[in-house]
Amino acid sequence: MAQHNGGQPAPLLAVENLNISFTHPGGETAITRDVSFTVAPGERVGVVGESGCGKSVTGLALMGLLPKRTARVRGQIRFQDRDLASLPAREMRRLRGREISMIFQEPMSALDPVFTVGEQLTETLRAHEKISRKEARQRAIAALEEVGIPSPHTRIDEYPYQFSGGMRQRVMIAMALICRPKLVIADEPTTALDVTVQAQITDLLCEISETTGTALLFITHDLGVVAETCSRLLTMYAGQVVESAPVDDVLRRPRHPYSSGLLRSLPGLSERGSRLPSIPGRVPAPDRMPAGCRFQARCPHAIDGCEQPQPLLEIHGARLARCWRTDQLQLPGAVNE
């Protein structure tokens, strides 16, 4: 692996100043603003934030799946030695599914209903590798077996509708992993599933990531899922990364008021029947972003000074927070220290 400064292994993915906007007849609306983060090889990184914070759009940009006509992607997406943001569509196609792949929330709409599961799995394989149909079929069966689908020899010839929700998500995972990508982006992969099945799927993702060394970017609204699967957490708010830190550190002591607010909102952390904390207000609309801290209108700690633009500050212990008051605040986390 290539080394860069300080003997640290080069990150697998380095997103730098990613600005995504959509053009429309009325002009251009910015969705993300200077999003920067890295994912190390084999690392599992969680991305949390409310709906409308730019999590999914960021994931789609990494995959080169945003609509070409309306989406503008500026900044760098360095994946190994290439910049995905400026990669020609043909080369992106070669990469997608082979080195970087995605798992979506709703497997029923992500899978094609008129093709068997086997046809869809082998299509991915044969698009990227020169192998025979027979060999592809063998690989597809092995992939289904790997994700815990019983009797894969017969189920490979079935259609998506013949699978249950949990089994369909397993098929999606098999498809995402069949070419052994280095990075998998999972966008709310367990949100549509029941807790008992969710537990099976998150266990499976961790297990596969550990055995194959696949890195995982886990987009979710569920901090519990992040705590159980990821080692690092990115909190996004209104199109910006507002905090980046090891998961356990955030759970103990978040350094951004928004991360703290999200954690404190979880009903499981409050005494039964007590009044629940919540974050008042809502995420500002993309065309009405304040110039300063984007969270200030909802922040219980906002004071004079917060109307200034907030840089992502470095805090000791590999942590970043977009809040100039971070050192003054003792923000509550999920556990009482």
């Binding site: 409310e50 709906s51 609204h221 569920d222 901090l223 607010g261 999200l262 909102s265 979880l266 009903p267 409050s270 029947g273 009044r275 629940l276 904390p277 919540s278 974050i279 008042p280 809502r282």
Partner: peptide, 13 residues
């Protein structure tokens, strides 16, 4: 969203 669930649950109470 998780951030506003608490307020709605409080209202029910």
């Amino acid at each position: 969203d998780v951030s506003i669930r608490g307020a709605v649950l409080n209202l029910f109470a």
